[in-house]
């Protein structure tokens, strides 16, 4: 049923004004991501520029909203921090031994602290899948709590540390294999995120599907299972948890399907970048293309070519 239900969202017909509004909303939810070994400061700088002013140079979408965040490796946090300044676009950094998490806990904590000290607004952590599969759930939860504590204590870390650092917990669902595991990991992560009641400077936090380094990355059924965990948490405790599907979402149409799923599973309050994000890179240009085509500007009715967009 979970797959049938997830597929049913794709049959919604999103047209005209709803489509345009959906595209703009999706754009505001993008965590524009580059996570490659060959990432250069220059590439990160151009990505930051694109994140803050995505519509520059694209016909008819000069008013495109900026995206939610730029997501980079810890070594690029200072570059992104400087480039983004106070543009409102957040600096997100993967940490905790991304993407495998196969490092000693002390190293992963240090990794997180460095990223926070360098000015990251958001930390995307990976859970310890080895411990999860071995059934050591408490160990997984304890580690999440420790990373959350680092975020809560960002003020004491000095450097460029931000006052509020939010935590996103990556389950790496592609390695969890079953929906039951996804649900169990979601519940576990949510509970760990709420150990401080969600009242600390780090707020409650997000759960996130994937690193993007493992296939399959985000899928709609997996995201639905995680949204249901978030819903049940909310109905039981009144605490909102954020959701971030990441990896594999490239087309605007897919993004709209995800938004439909959020709207019909969690309702209106989650239709906000504070509570829902897309971890993506290629998606942004397709959103721009569709906005240009469906908008009222010069691009109306035209289908922009690939070379009409900047790469980053």
């Amino acid at each position: 049923m979970v797959e049938a239900r997830a597929a049913s969202f794709k049959t919604r017909s999103i047209k005209t004004s709803a489509k345009l509004a959906g595209l703009r909303l999706a754009m505001r939810m993008v965590d524009l991501t580059t996570l490659e070994g060959k990432d250069s400061p220059e590439k990160v700088r151009s990505l930051c520029r694109k994140a803050a002013r995505p519509g520059d140079g694209v016909l008819g979408v000069g008013d495109a909203p900026s995206v939610a965040a730029v997501c980079v490796y810890p070594s690029m946090v200072p570059v992104a921090r400087e480039a983004l300044g106070e543009s409102g676009v957040k600096v997100a950094s993967v940490a905790t031994g991304f993407p495998s998490g196969q490092y000693p806990l002390a190293v992963r904590i240090r990794d997180t602290e460095e990223a926070v000290r360098d000015g990251a607004d958001e930390i995307d952590m990976v859970i310890n899948r080895g411990a999860f599969h071995a059934g050591r759930f408490e160990e997984v939860a304890r580690e999440i709590r420790e990373f959350k504590a680092v975020c809560n204590a960002s003020g004491s870390l000095g450097g460029n540390a931000r006052e509020h650092v939010h935590l996103k917990v990556i389950l790496e669902t592609g390695e969890l294999d079953t929906y039951d595991n996804v649900r169990r990991a979601s519940d576990l992560a949510i509970e760990a995120l709420l150990y401080d009641g969600g009242e600390g400077p780090a707020g409650t936090g997000f759960i996130k599907t994937s690193t993007g380094k493992v296939a399959p990355a985000a899928t709609m059924p997996v995201t639905l299972v995680m949204l249901e965990a978030i819903r049940d948490c909310y109905l039981g405790t009144g605490k909102m948890i954020g959701m971030k599907p990441a990896g594999g979402i490239r087309a605007s149409k897919e993004a709209l399907h995800y938004l439909v799923m959020v709207k019909e599973t969690l309702g209106d309050r989650w239709l906000d970048p504070d509570w829902f994000r897309f971890g993506a890179s290629a998606l942004l240009n397709d959103l721009l293309r569709q906005m240009s085509r469906h908008g009222e500007g010069e691009g109306k009715g035209k289908y922009a070519a690939r070379y009409d967009f900047s790469e980053a």
Partner: peptide
């Protein structure tokens, strides 16, 4: 719509299936 679970300190929030991002007629 909401559920109130028994237990201390829990409130009864509702999910809001309202008009944010309303689908245009199709």
């Amino acid at each position: 719509a909401a559920v109130r679970r028994s237990g201390p300190g829990t409130n009864a929030p509702g999910l809001d299936f309202g008009l944010a991002w309303n689908y245009a007629p199709a």
